[in-house]
């Protein structure tokens, strides 16, 4: 039972990361129709920035995290500008731009930091023990921080003018433009928030992970699986799907086989889409 519970916590932690990344992706996809396939690479960049700040400059953990998130909110603005010329073209164009972006980022990181795995020191190496389970503090911090971020995002969208503009564009882009909402501004804002979320997820998970240029390759694909299953553009679907996939994966690694750990999610996706071509929770065409 203790082992199961331990895996469950691992799954929820993994799910927290998935949810944060998938949230950004679903905002971008749902609102702008851009298949931002390079999103995972900004997660990877976020992890490297954490490494750079805390190892090379000795910046304390939380300060490094704050700097990283702020920086990547700005980076998101730049990303939006790259996508802008293809935003209203076919799905394919944006996807190809994303692949180009991903190649540039991955190779740039390789050129600067090499291909090896890097680590940053865990700021909270203590463990919590109860009822036969050992939990690292950092895992609990990830889970807690993800919940805080999700609640903040929810409040931002529901309670602020800027946030509700995002929701309006998500529901009806032309309508939103007609009532005077600037789609360009919303687009910039969305990319900024999404990229910031990815950096936050990366910063939170960084102390527990190997940091390498190819760390995000399956992450973005999984995030896509999550948002497709959750319904493109659905915030609730991305959160639920993220946690669900995290837990499923942790249990599959523990009880079935770690070699095929990445396969289950994708196989599930193909099967589910074959039965429900627009995702589990409805979603939009």
């Amino acid at each position: 039972m203790g082992y199961f519970f331990q895996q469950l916590v691992n799954g929820i932690m993994l799910g927290s990361v998935y949810s944060l990344v998938a949230l950004g992706l679903t905002l971008i996809f749902g609102i702008l129709g851009v298949a931002h396939f390079a999103h995972g690479h900004f997660y990877m960049l976020g992890a490297f920035l954490m490494f750079f700040l805390s190892v090379s400059f000795g910046v304390p953990y939380w300060a490094a995290l704050a700097i990283s998130v702020a920086f990547f909110c700005l980076v998101g603005v730049g990303v939006e500008f790259i996508y802008r010329p293809v935003r209203d073209k076919s799905d394919v164009s944006a996807f190809i731009v994303a692949i180009g972006m991903l190649l540039v980022i991955e190779e740039a990181v390789r050129a600067v930091w090499g291909t090896g795995n890097r680590r940053i020191t865990n700021p909270y190496p203590q463990v919590l023990k109860f009822a036969g389970i050992t939990l690292q503090y950092q895992r609990l911090i990830i889970i807690g921080a993800a919940i805080v971020l999700i609640v903040l995002l929810h409040l931002f969208i529901k309670r602020t003018r800027m946030g509700s503009a995002i929701e309006a564009v998500a529901q009806d882009r032309e309508g939103a433009a007609l009532v005077g909402i600037s789609v360009n501004r919303v687009s910039i804002l969305t990319f900024s928030v999404a990229t910031g979320l990815a950096a936050a997820a990366a910063g939170l998970a960084a102390p527990l992970a190997f940091i390498a240029p190819d760390m995000a390759n399956t992450l973005v694909l999984k995030a896509f699986v999550i948002i497709v299953l959750g319904g493109l553009g659905s915030i609730k679907g991305a959160i639920l799907g993220g946690y669900l996939l995290g837990v499923m994966e942790a249990l599959a690694i523990a009880y079935i086989s770690p070699a095929y750990k990445d396969v289950w999610a994708f196989a599930a996706l193909i099967l589910i889409l074959a039965i429900r071509p627009t995702g589990l929770f409805g979603g939009r065409e």
């Binding site: 996807f95 694909l221 990445d262 396969v263 994708f266 196989a267 193909i270 099967l271 074959a274």
Partner: peptide
């Protein structure tokens, strides 16, 4: 037969997932 039940971005993602599965297997 499976993948063409979906279209557009869904189809791209399904085919990419299939590629990934084949590679891992």
């Amino acid at each position: 037969l499976l993948a063409f039940r979906t279209r557009g971005p869904y189809f791209i993602i399904v085919t990419l997932c299939f590629n990934f599965i084949v590679y891992v297997v």
